[in-house]
Each structure stands twice: as C-alpha cells, then as structure tokens.
C-alpha cells in the first residue's frame, strides 16, 4: 500500500514559535513535520507520512475565524493530503476551538478524513464533538505520548474507510451516535456483577451514565415576601384544557406560557395535565394539586405575598432532555426577570 499523505495542524506554541506573545502569528505552512508531528510520524510507522504542517497562532485564528479558516484550509489543500490531524489541544481552549474548526472544515469542505484530540472539558470538545471525531486526551501536554498512541491508529482506520466502533471502544469523545453491538453477557448478569462490584467498593463502569448537571450559587433570600411578585413554573404539565400548544406528554420540545389573570381556582373544566409520566387522574380532577393557584390567590388577598405573576410557565418533565430544559429555563428566566418577578415557586411531579 502506498504511504498516506498526512497534514498536521498545530498552534504557535507547539511549533515552538512562542507563547502568548506570539498568539497572533499568522497562518504558515511548512514542509514535513514540526514539533509533536515527529511523534505522530514515528507512530505512523511507514503507513502514513506527515508531508506538511500548518501553523497558526491561537488568537489570530479565533479573532479572524472566517479568514483564518480559509487560509489554513487552502494551505492544507496545497499538500494534497489523504488525512488531516489537528492538535491535540489538551485543555487549551482557543487551540481546541481552532482544532475543532479546522478538522470539521477539512471534513466538510475538502471531504478529507480529519480528527483532533482534546481534554473532555476543553470548550472545543463540546462545540465540535458532533462534527468530527475528537480523541479524548489528558488535560496537559504531558499526555502527548498517550494521545499519539490513541490518535494514530484511529486516524489510519478512518482514512482506510474502516468501520468505526462505539466511542468506548475507539476512545473518541461520545458524539451522540449510538452504535449497536452484541454483549457477550446478558443484561441481568452484567447488572448483578455491577451491583456486587459496587457493594464491595470495587470500580465498575455504568452502562447508563447520568447527564452532567451544573450547579448554581443559591440566590439571596427575598427580603420581604409580602411585597414580592411570585411566579409559578411547573414541570408537571398543567395546561389549559385541551392543551392548546400541544406540549408533548414526554420528551417535551417546548413549554407553554399562560395568562392566569382573574383565575382564582383551577378546575376540571378549565385545566388538565399534559404529562405522560404519572397517573393524571388527580391533576385532571383539580390542577391546583400541582399548580397551587388557589392558595396563592388567597395569600395575595391576605397580603402575605405582593402578587402572583400574571403568567405561569409549564412543560412536561418526563424524558425531557437536560439540554432542552436548560434552553427553556434560559428563556423563561430572562422573561421573568424582565417582568420584575422576585421569586419563583417551581413545582414538579
């Protein structure tokens, strides 16, 4: 087989041009390998060869994204590569964004296989994991040896057009694509083994990792509730009867915002739940059991709270993606703040 032509993209630091003071270095192409390219070239062991290296300063790239991408792409193309490797960027954020941009542009615009490598928390990883294969690396250049060992066989496999397995087998950052395969042991057996390992304090790998939930600092307390505007938000799916906006009963893609001006009680004639994840009988009989409008009106009248906000927000929480919930919350939060709401009571089922 003929040697594959590989092109390597690196930043000013790995090209030994300089550090932060040289981050505005303009794109530059050099014949052969530079810096970490030497290790890649050795690991290719004759199957591929780095014929050229394209270097760009991280600040220059990110500040002139469109132009820099064009320039870098033209330089890469001039080497007529069969394969492009960007980075690895480890935990360097701007370098990660540059590597992700370059690799995905090479793949999309030149139609040439391209990969990069990054630490899982590099912002470039989240931005580009769905567009290109990103091999997971350690968080600093101390992990270069391991990164090269993981990236080279994967890159050769990709360039050869071989079947790419699941992220857990291949070492790339999960890209959201499920790959089917047969397990040797059936589920019950694996579950019991996992449980036994857990009980005896041994390490085990879950087959269903939970999403990462972020943490926020608690907000300061409301100074005087009797003057506060309180809004109701719920993931319990309470909607005006008939579910006018067709909020899905699970995996909601949207939320509803409804005017409760002049509403003092939710009844079975006016409100119901759209939620498909719990027995809806009790909420359909009396939606105040999930969205307590009746008592908050009472509190409003007694002067216990300033007022109940005119609109409530609702969605169904079952199976709803964390990313969707986060996007809903960003919009809802902005509106509530703009409307002068002081506090929110969020009810969930």
């Amino acid at each position: 087989m003929e040697k594959l032509r590989a092109v390597h993209y690196i930043n000013q630091f790995f090209a030994q041009i300089g550090g932060e003071e040289k981050a505005d270095h303009k794109p530059e192409a050099r014949e052969g390998f530079v810096g970490p390219g030497m290790a890649f070239n050795a690991e290719f062991s004759g199957k591929a060869e780095i014929v050229g290296t394209v270097i760009c300063g991280d600040s220059y790239f990110n500040e002139n994204l469109e132009m820099a991408t064009k320039e870098v792409l033209a330089m890469i193309k001039s080497f007529k590569p069969d394969l492009v490797i960007a980075g690895p960027a480890f935990n360097a954020g701007r370098y990660g964004m540059a590597c992700g941009t370059v690799a995905s542009a090479v793949k999309k615009e030149l139609g040439i296989p391209a990969i990069t490598g990054m630490y899982i928390e590099n912002p470039g990883a989240d931005s580009f994991k769905k567009e290109v294969y990103i091999i997971e690396t350690k968080n600093s250049a101390a992990g270069m040896r391991d990164a090269v060992k993981a990236m080279v066989p994967f890159a050769l496999k990709l360039a050869a057009g071989e079947k790419i397995g699941a992220s857990a087998e291949e070492g790339y950052i999960p890209n959201g694509i499920r790959v089917n395969f047969f397990e040797k042991k059936r589920g019950s057996e694996r579950a019991v083994e996992m449980l036994l390992a857990k009980l005896s304090g041994k390490p085990f790998t879950t087959e269903f990792p939970m999403p990462d939930f972020d943490r926020v600092e608690p907000n300061p307390a409301v100074k005087d509730v009797s003057k506060a505007t309180i809004a109701l938000v719920t993931s319990g799916g309470i909607v005006p009867k008939g579910n006018p906006d067709h909020i899905e009963s699970s995996s909601a893609s949207k939320y509803g915002k409804y005017d409760i001006d002049g509403i003092f009680d939710l009844t079975d004639a006016t409100y119901e739940t759209a939620h498909g994840g719990y027995d809806p009988v009790y909420a359909n009989q009396d939606a105040d059991r999930v969205l307590p409008v009746d008592i908050l009106r009472e509190f409003e009248k007694e002067g216990k709270i300033g007022k109940l906000h005119r609109y409530y927000y609702t969605t169904t929480g079952n199976g709803t993606a964390v990313a969707s919930a986060k996007a809903f919350a960003e919009k809802i939060g902005k509106e509530l703040a703009a409307d002068g709401v002081d506090a929110v009571i969020l009810t969930s089922t």
């Binding site: 608690p218 907000n219 809806p280 009988v281 059991r289 999930v290």
Partner: peptide, 16 residues
C-alpha cells in the same frame, strides 16, 4: 441542583 427544596405529598399530587 435545586438550592431550596420543599418536600411534597406524592408524585401525582404534590400539593394535594
């Protein structure tokens, strides 16, 4: 990650 949590009655009728 909720910061202020008030436990309620039951899943299908938290406030009733």
């Amino acid at each position: 990650g909720a910061n202020r949590i008030v436990p309620t009655v039951a899943i299908p009728h938290p406030l009733g």
